[in-house]
């Protein structure tokens, strides 16, 4: 019990005094996971759109595969990427193993299925009537797709946030691809695993609090953005009567 209390006390000291190691690990975590999220978003929206807006044989099967990959274990992605980028692998010449870039690659692959799948779901959520309306207004194929994506923006945003959440909280890829090298590839999750093993509960708890704080901030941002849509109804109540 005393250990836990000491740990929490130490954790707050580390956070309040802005411990350099804590900051460095947090910054690297954010850098890697945000990069992976941005890259995955840039792939998931067009790919999701391509799948949603086209009819082809095997579409249902493809979507089922994507959905299955939502829950792929992080260590399997870790293994896969390890084999790809290790020196003897097909991408070995780039020397990505045990680098942040390698971790970004791994996390991107990890969150791509869930983001693509949720983008498809988001687009399916847009009323069929909207698409007809856009076409009848003279939209080209591209214009109508762009507007439909825009119409689904809030649902797509939550797909992005979910992807980021999965990226920043995973251990498998970070450990296997990054290798948890201090000052190079050590991120929040791998750090917690290591420090706990070494009995540094204070630092572990501090890192855990930071991780939770990031999750909280993400949720707050999401609520703020979606309530931007909701607050319109408040505006209505105070707005001019029609």
């Amino acid at each position: 019990m005393q250990e836990i209390i000491d740990g929490i006390t130490q954790a707050f000291q580390l956070i309040i005094t802005l411990n350099p190691e804590l900051l460095e690990v947090t910054a690297l975590s954010l850098y890697i996971s945000l990069s992976a999220t941005v890259i995955a978003t840039l792939i998931a929206i067009p790919v999701g759109g391509l799948i949603h807006f086209h009819e082809f044989t095997g579409k249902r099967v493809l979507i089922t595969i994507i959905q299955t990959l939502y829950s792929v274990p992080t260590v399997i992605i870790g293994l896969l990427v390890f084999l790809l980028i290790s020196r003897s692998g097909p991408l070995g010449i780039f020397g990505l193993l045990f680098t942040p870039t390698g971790m970004i690659l791994g996390q991107t692959i990890l969150i791509l299925p869930i983001m693509t799948g949720l983008v498809i779901t988001a687009l399916s959520g847009v009323d069929r009537n909207i698409r007809d309306t856009l076409i009848s207004l003279g939209a080209t194929e591209f214009q109508s797709i762009a507007q439909t994506v825009r119409e689904a923006r809030f649902a797509i945003l939550s797909a992005v946030i979910l992807g980021f959440g999965r990226a920043i909280s995973e251990v498998g890829v970070a450990m296997m691809i990054g290798g948890n090298i201090r000052g190079e590839t050590r991120v929040l999750t791998t750090s917690i695993a290591l420090e706990t093993g070494m009995g540094n509960f204070g630092l572990s708890i501090a890192l855990g609090i930071v991780l939770l704080a990031i999750a909280l901030i993400v949720v707050l941002i999401m609520n703020l953005m979606t309530s931007g849509a909701l607050s319109d109804s408040d505006r209505v109540r105070g707005g001019p009567q029609a």
Binding site: N129, T133, G138, R150, E151
Partner: peptide, 18 residues
């Protein structure tokens, strides 16, 4: 599309966008 752009259609559901 060029011909369609000389017409306009209003559907039963208004289909307004957000």
């Amino acid at each position: 599309r060029a011909i369609r752009r000389r017409m306009a259609m209003v559907f039963q559901k208004p289909g307004v966008l957000n």
